[in-house]
Design a binder for these strands. Structure first.
Lengths: 151, 151
DNA sequence: CTTCATGCAAAACATTTGCAGCTGG
DNA sequence: CCAGCTGCAAATGTTTTGCATGAAG
């Protein structure tokens, strides 16, 4: 269901670094640490989680810097921001293109399901509404098998 | 593309009132004002907008009460909450069931497009992942015809 | 009458900003 | 070197909470 972890992660990291260099952004150790965390993230970490992970590797990093870096990467299209109604924001640096998510409403875990027929929707909408579609967001909410069993 | 405004709005208001009575929640003037605004809302107002609209009719209402009422209605399933990555929350009291939205990234207007093949997706996901799907969220982002012309 | 709801102000959060000092290229 | 980045702390903005008062049922 997902690409091979380590290889994909290394590739993502390279891609992010290139993008920064391309646009003459500096590669500071703090930034690099954030990039590595995001590129390697299998889950969908919050800023606070990224901050903790970065600190383990580079202890003087500040929360503000993590925010600034994440925002920068988002603007460069190298990270996908997922905001939820409860105000929590999560980030996906592993797959920065929009893709569906499925969120367990009990354990709050987020997964990336495969789903074929979505690109189709963009076209249908464009045609019916006359809008130029830039991107979309599709989330499913429900109980994962483990949490369902636990009830 | 949408139900007839006034009739549908009145019907939604009745439905909300019934739901509150059913569960023995009190019908205060402040609540009623919020219900009316939400039931009649063609757009997708923010809490601040609801607050303003309610104040026009019932000037002593506090922001906290609007929040509490909106949260109550959300829990009763009578209002749909739409959170966005920028932290803004919007509410749809006119159609409380999940439905797709299309958001213009220039003028920020939100519309409700018709789209046939969504229920189908719930099933496909349930089958592929083993989750019990409770609800979903589908948003499209793009330029509306007016904003595109303006470029 | 007896809750439950309201309104106020303070608290709680998450995120952003201003700025002095540091540092990558 | 010096523009851009960092870290700190303060500011911001939104939503939540505690509690005394008021009113719905």
């Amino acid at each position: 269901m997902k690409q091979h972890g380590a290889a994909h992660s290394a590739q993502r990291l390279e891609q992010m670094i290139s993008k920064l260099r391309e646009q003459s952004f500096r590669l500071t150790p703090q930034r690099l640490a954030v990039l590595e965390i995001l590129a390697a993230s299998e889950g969908h970490p919050t800023v606070a989680e990224i901050y903790e992970a970065v600190r383990a590797r580079f202890p003087t990093t500040s929360l503000a810097t993590v925010y600034k870096t994440v925002i920068l990467l988002k603007e460069l299209g190298e990270v996908l921001e997922l905001g939820f109604p409860d105000g929590s924001n999560r980030y996906d640096g592993s797959r920065p293109q929009p893709h569906p998510h499925i969120i367990c409403t009990a354990c709050r875990r987020i997964m990336d399901p495969e789903l074929s027929s979505i690109e189709h929707l963009n076209e249908e909408i464009a045609q019916k509404t006359g809008y130029t579609i830039q991107h979309h967001r599709l989330d499913f909410f429900g109980l994962c098998p483990a949490c369902r069993a636990r009830r």
